[in-house]
Design a protein around this nucleic acid. Structure first.
Lengths: 259, 259
DNA sequence: GTAGTAATCTCATTATAAGAGATTGATGAA
DNA sequence: TTCATCAATCTCTTATAATGAGATTACTAC
């Protein structure tokens, strides 16, 4: 997390040093021994054990076999809570169900967090989901319908840094070669109300996304992903208008739910 | 979290004070304003804002509309990571799928965390799930097949405190009136290899659970929940042996995966 | 038992978290 | 525009509590 732009050279306080321990638990390395943590973080022995005690007592990590640690139950409970209390999910879920039932697709609700997007709810049609986007999976900000649907609805001042940062990605997927080209594309997206992407994130998958606005400002995106071979122009048009309409309805509910 | 037994009167350090903020986010009250947090926790204004900044920068909370805060994206990502890296889930999932396909039931993998159990994976048959136990939902330790399947396999030294603590619950569901009765029941469960409970957690639901052992010590439980009306003795016997066998297989894999 | 390792404790030192109050920043009204 | 109001951050001093070296204790395995 952090700022995401510069690697944050400010000196960390003790709270941040504790939380830094959690940063190390990744898919590539989900378990750590105290010794490894000490070495990696440069903390002394008593300090590290003190931190581990805090994290263990609050359930964020748990001991596993062999004196190692993994993410703990608190993480699971907090996600459950977040799932149950997120007004975006509550509002979007019926639409995801409806859309995924109507087409062979995966229907997603994706939140935007400054420098990335994160799937918060996902339903796949029982038949042949072209790709899986489970809750919790981060998405790139430089490519794909979701990112574009959000960028298209940002005020120019907020878009420009993103355009600059993801210029290479945006160019490679054909959004535009210059900032002007890109802004022009985004303007068309804005006018259409949906962004469509062909195989930008998952090869062979078509993404159709519309932004969810809160007080006119994009906070999330509703996206339908279908397999490329199913995707003729007619179907894409139809789904586009359904997605646009559903996102609009969710946005209308947003203002009263303080998403 | 915490110790769970006595309400922890030790003075909290700054890390625990920061994490205490997260404790307030509950299903009943998933959003808090800084003002409310200050009042509830007794922190001064600068302190609370400092804490919020740390939590916000690390993604544990996020600002929502109206200057309030909710649990943030980090929670969602960490749960995703935990889901993907938990060897228990990886090992148990095929069994959950198989069992839920074979019977109209909900199949659960439930981890044990000292003073409570927590569902970490759950699959419901498409037809009439009698009750929903999604990932993240805590379960009581005093009642139900899951708790009993774990207690039955604990060494006596570890059972006794639990027996004392949950005496009232255990009595009310008919496990036994005295510690001796309860221990006798647990001994029978241990011999049978499965615990069976009729409507102890959810009225009308039958739970059949077998412990998952790591190095002979229970760490989790595999449970099948079926609707009471489907549950004749024959079926319960059959499912019992299937659950026992599946839990055994998961246990056998446990030792090599440092669950 | 005993070796070998892992985890915790002690305590002096010093860094730093906390708080009161001032200041700045944002938002909306006239 | 200016002003009022509320929210968030900053300043700076003080007292507190986090730190780390090394000793000690608790585990495990043999």
């Amino acid at each position: 997390m952090g700022s995401g732009i510069e690697p944050k050279l400010v000196k960390a306080n003790s709270q941040e040093r504790v939380l830094a321990v959690l940063d190390l638990f990744t898919e590539a390395r989900p378990q750590w021994s105290p010794e490894e943590l000490m070495k990696e973080l440069g903390y002394t022995r008593p300090t590290l054990y003190r931190y581990l005690k805090s994290l263990k007592d609050s359930g964020f990590v748990m001991p596993t076999r062999g004196g190692r640690y993994a993410l703990g139950p608190r993480v699971v409970e907090m996600d459950y809570l977040s799932r149950r209390s997120d007004p975006l999910i509550a509002t979007a879920m019926p639409h995801l169900e409806r859309l995924s039932a109507a087409h062979p697709c995966t229907a997603l609700a994706v939140r935007w967090y400054g420098d990335k997007t994160l799937c918060v709810a996902s339903i796949a049609s029982s038949v042949s989901p072209v790709s899986s986007y489970p809750r919790g999976r981060p998405m790139p900000m430089g490519r794909g319908a979701i990112a574009r649907s959000i960028m298209a609805f940002l005020p120019k001042q907020r878009v420009m840094p993103l355009v600059a940062r993801y210029a290479a990605d945006l160019r490679s997927v054909g959004v535009g070669d210059t900032p002007e080209d890109i802004l022009a594309t985004l303007k068309r997206v804005r006018r259409a109300g949906v962004a469509i992407a062909f195989g930008e994130v998952t090869p062979g998958a078509v993404g159709i996304a519309a932004p969810i606005l809160d007080a006119g400002y994009p906070i999330a995106s509703l996206c339908i992903t279908i397999a490329g071979q199913h995707a003729n122009g007619k179907l894409i048009d139809r789904i586009s208008s359904e997605v646009r309409e559903a996102a609009w309805q969710i946005s209308a509910a947003a203002d009263m739910n303080s998403m």
